[in-house]
Computed example of a mutant assay.
Amino acid sequence: MNKLYFLKKPNLNLTKDQIANVVHDINVTNFARMKLILIIFIIVEILFILFNDIPYLITPSSNVIWNDSKYFILHSFNVLVSFIGIILIKISTKCSKNKFGLMNKLLIPTLATLILSSMAIINGLDQAKPGNVSSVFIANFIIFSAVIMLRFPLNLAVYSISFLAYLGGLVIFQHDTHLLITNIINGFIFFLAIILISTEIYNSNYEKITQNIILQEINTKLNYMSSHDPLTELLNRRSFSNQVSEKMILIDESKEISTLILIDIDHFKHVNDKFGHPVGDIVLKKVSNIIIKHIKTTGLATRWGGEEFLIFLFQTSINEAHALAENIRLEIQNKVIEADKFQIQITASFGISLLKDNFSNSFDTSIKAADVALYKAKDQGRNQVVIASEDYERVLY
């Protein structure tokens, strides 16, 4: 990024939903990273307790570098905080999206503040030993600022608390004036650098996640556009054929039957001639919405031709298809379509056929049977459902 954003997030012209998704992804990443840090802390602190603190408590010796019982308390505190933090992270990840974000704002900064402040106090105890410096605390400071994404000024608040604990430890425990001044100066330099670094890391990750989300949305839209009719938003013929073919493999294996419903809007040419093609497009859209509502998630539908629609019903008997077609027919018949100050009522005719075998062998035959049934419905006065003659005996009244 060309500049740092402190009080404002990067201005990338995002929608509210996009911003919410970016923040959510950052929260998820923070929880995963904090969990990993806590696991590492538990391992390291337990090793210190087992191989340094407990041996000193059992046999105190001035030869041990970290020879103060306060080390045991602080290391044990870090282990406890880390364990509790892992448990809270697991609980938080089960929260809703809104509560998850709130927990991230509270939990991650709190854990970072507690652990870094504890490390600052440990660093203060280190100062009591001649020659000891602040490398351990600074290392942890850098790790947290580089791994955890905290937006300014939250990062300033979190790191300031632990840095003040660090300065307090220097003043209390470091009696060598030269080392005291050196560590204070170095500490301030690192503190300022860490605020800049952590802000840049947050902004960079914000921008990167944003670009990924936008790219995913673009790919989703392109995939949708390539597989759907732009007017009706139903599947286009290619995508419809591919998906039906995939389902027909399951049908071939399970010996289940499925059905095709071919729909044609009655007198649609009259609608276009009388009201114009834009109104005709609205009619097509309204009919497609009715179809989508009735097939729900179990069926597939496509705009088969100009005013023709084709429905594929997976593992559906001819009786069930007939009932569904009747429901669609009645809703189309009773629908008053308002378009360009016109109120239009239309009807549609339906032809139904079984799709019994694998897709490549039976689809052409089945669609022709549905087409014959459809034209029979037209010849019989339109606005009705007709089943292909070879499948008619399957209907139970």
Results as ranks from 00 to 15, higher is better:
P55W: 00
P55E: 02
P55A: 01
Y56M: 15
L57D: 04
L57F: 01
T59E: 01
T59M: 11
S61R: 13
S61H: 14
S62T: 07
S62W: 09
N63H: 10
N63A: 11
N63G: 08
N63E: 14
V64S: 05
W66H: 12
N67G: 10
N67M: 10
D68W: 03
D68L: 14
D68C: 02
S69Y: 05
K70Q: 09
Y71A: 02
Y71E: 07
I73P: 03
L74Y: 11
L74R: 09
H75T: 11
V79H: 02
V79L: 03
V79A: 03
V79F: 00
V79N: 04
L80G: 04
L80A: 08
V81Q: 07
S82D: 12
S82Y: 06
S82V: 10
F83P: 02
G85M: 08
I86H: 04
I86S: 03
I86R: 14
I86V: 10
I87V: 14
I87M: 12
K90T: 07
K90C: 05
I91D: 04
I91F: 10
S92N: 06
S92T: 02
T93P: 04
T93V: 15
K94S: 12
K94F: 05
K94Q: 13
K97Q: 10
K97H: 02
K97I: 06
N98C: 07
N98W: 07
K99Q: 05
K99T: 08
K99Y: 15
K99P: 12
F100P: 06
F100Q: 06
F100H: 14
F100G: 04
G101E: 03
G101F: 01
L102G: 02
L102H: 06
L102S: 12
L102V: 12
M103V: 01
N104L: 14
K105D: 06
L106H: 08
L107K: 04
L107E: 08
I108N: 03
P109R: 06
P109N: 05
T110P: 05
L111H: 00
T113F: 03
L114V: 08
I115D: 04
I115H: 03
I115T: 09
L116D: 10
S117Q: 04
S117H: 11
S118G: 15
S118Y: 00
S118D: 06
M119Q: 13
M119F: 14
M119N: 11
